[in-house]
Write a protein that binds this DNA or RNA. Structure first.
Lengths: 353, 353
DNA sequence: ATCGACTTTGTAATCGATTACATCTTTTGA
DNA sequence: TCAAAAGATGTAATCGATTACAAAGTCGAT
């Protein structure tokens, strides 16, 4: 049993540096903050003392006094989803530039864990919040908004118009996905859903329905399989699809993971993609480029999304919001690739097959 | 331009609660910490006041006074790699149980960014460090060890025997990978490397060489392609492989991403896997289960790794280390799946092909 | 030499909790 | 019944920085 004491060497405080330099703590603080006037000579002497002593300011003390932590909390639904890793990169780039750090709050797909991070915010450990989890109306759990901190929603929010949001155009893209399938001749579609109660899912499904309406298709022209934003949801949907008597020919999955799960499962069952069935995913994860055939999907501007979200939060924290900042909606890009092709009957008609 | 002031409502301090309850701040503190004796009545009154006022303690002040933040820094080489998301889950589970929080330091594959997190540690914002990045000898950049905090290395470290480590048996597994290929009749192997200077990579390559030696194979029996832990490295290696005159028949990639990149590229070139070439990956990421054929790989005990690493750090912080805690080496599991099969010549000889 | 304006530096209050110690109250036991 | 012990509560110091304000120093103009 070893009982080594950490930092047994006495900590160096600003007072120690001051003594070493023969000045007051106020002067040391001014030198280090580069604020207030100091003669070149004093500057030199203080810096020398700082280096000799190896002093690093205690930010806990600083944070207490300044009432700021220069840290932003980013609440992420599920870190294992590569989409968020990309967004985080954009956020980090932007925040770092302004001298802010970030703390990641991973919910691991379990909304209850949000409470933990509400506490973090309430206890003054962060200056602002980037929220990537949506909430459904009527949800009265403890809320990030309760912390009374500057906050930006980076996912579709229902209600709460007083929170600025920076989102991608989920609805428009889903609508375009349907259009893409319809243009290829598909008249019977399948929808692989995300988690129930998820706001992003709600947006994507709404867009899907709008797309159907655009094409003059009704309820009888599609099947919806419940799921989540994971591979296995696509597998389950595909199994259900395979058992169906009147199979759709065009599938829209609300995320790439489930699209790939679907793809692999129908292929394993002997179906050809896109000859027998076309599949469109959503997100544009790197892996979608490594399936066979490559997945047709909508590419999210992830890095940009992260940057913009952070930029708005920074403005909010500095009280520099303009009316244009309250809502930002970024477009997605259709990557029309290998998993979508003409519908079987359309191909027959045009003599391709 | 809106200039809303955040928290314009006066903050509630412990003194406010004390006044409301008609007791001293010491008593409020004792009630909230559940430490020291208080009568049931006082407890009631204080709790009532806490709830009425909606008080949440300011942890910055608490951290200053107690000289602890109950937070651990986890330095991760690259968050986009799903391997780390899994490990983080294990870490989070373990730390949360002991009342600790975690801050993720993402290096984004750029070792220079470590300095940022060294600062975080030096400025007393965390109580301990879990380090998942390795260092090569002779590297004299500013070092996490400089912070003088309790630290556990969760990757192969060279030297620095005073830092406890919790790692997977990279070397043994790589050795077993070669054995697996050799048993299938492969006599000429290819090695898709990870980043130069990476300690984990070094371990895996060392194991690869050991495996060759076990089989009585020498330098002339393998090709090594430099790479990184990303898809594109596998693609590049495969392109090089395709151009070679005397192609290896068994490939070992030091991570699943590059293995999959390799797989897709040789398949695109018309080769059959595993008939023409066998591939073994490393890590056991979820996606390795979704390739066609499914990737043969070594499964890392990621969640366990995270848990064990955290458990050791907790002991270290509490001064409860036993000699067994200084080094933990977890075994990997071979998932012998679709991408490995008998070597072409072996198949001919045994009349399979 | 004196005054005012400006620059530089120091003194001490402050941020909001925890906690050692002192004080007061209650209980225990002879 | 009273001293001693145990229990409950309060007072004030403390953690280590920042910063308002005061004080001292510098300089040029009169």
């Amino acid at each position: 049993m070893s009982r080594k004491r950490w930092r047994s060497v006495k900590e160096i405080r600003i007072a120690d540096v001051a003594r070493l330099a023969g000045v007051s703590t106020a002067t040391v603080s001014r030198v280090l903050a580069n604020r207030g006037a100091v003669t070149a000579k004093t500057y030199e002497v203080v810096m020398e003392a700082v280096h000799r002593s190896g002093y690093t300011p205690n930010s806990v003390a600083r944070n207490l006094r300044t009432r700021r932590t220069m840290t932003v909390l980013v609440v992420v639904p599920n870190l294992a989803n590569p989409v968020f890793a990309q967004i985080l990169r954009g956020i980090d780039d932007e925040l770092t530039q302004s001298g802010y750090g970030l703390v990641i709050g991973n919910l691991d797909n379990c909304l209850e864990r949000e409470a933990r991070y509400v506490d973090l915010a309430l206890s003054r450990q962060v200056d602002g919040i980037l929220l990537m989890t949506g909430r459904v109306p009527g949800d009265d759990k403890r809320h990030m908004g309760d912390a009374g901190l500057p906050m930006v929603a980076m996912c579709a929010t229902i209600g709460d118009s007083r929170i600025p949001n920076v989102v991608v155009q989920d609805r428009e893209a889903s609508r375009a996905a349907v259009q893409h399938l319809v243009e290829l001749g598909h008249r019977r579609l399948g929808y692989v859903a995300g988690p129930i109660g998820n706001v992003i899912e709600a947006e994507r499904f709404a867009g899907f329905l709008e797309g159907l309406e655009d094409a003059g298709l009704g309820k009888q022209n599609f099947v919806r399989w419940e799921g989540r934003f994971v591979f296995s949801a696509g597998v389950a949907a595909a199994e259900s699809f395979l058992r169906a008597k009147n199979r759709p020919t065009g599938i829209f999955a609300s995320c790439d993971e489930s699209a790939i799960g679907f793809l692999k499962t129908v292929q394993a069952a002997g179906l050809r993609v896109p000859d027998d069935v076309s599949i469109v995913g959503f997100d544009g994860i790197e892996f979608a480029d490594y399936t066979e055939p490559t997945l047709t999907t909508f590419q999210q501007p992830l890095h940009l999304l992260g940057q913009r979200g952070s930029a708005v939060l920074l403005k909010l924290m500095r009280g520099e919001m303009t009316s244009a900042d309250w809502s930002t909606r970024l477009p997605l890009t259709l990557l029309a690739r290998g998993t979508t092709g003409k519908a079987p009957h359309a191909r027959r008609r045009s003599g391709v097959a």
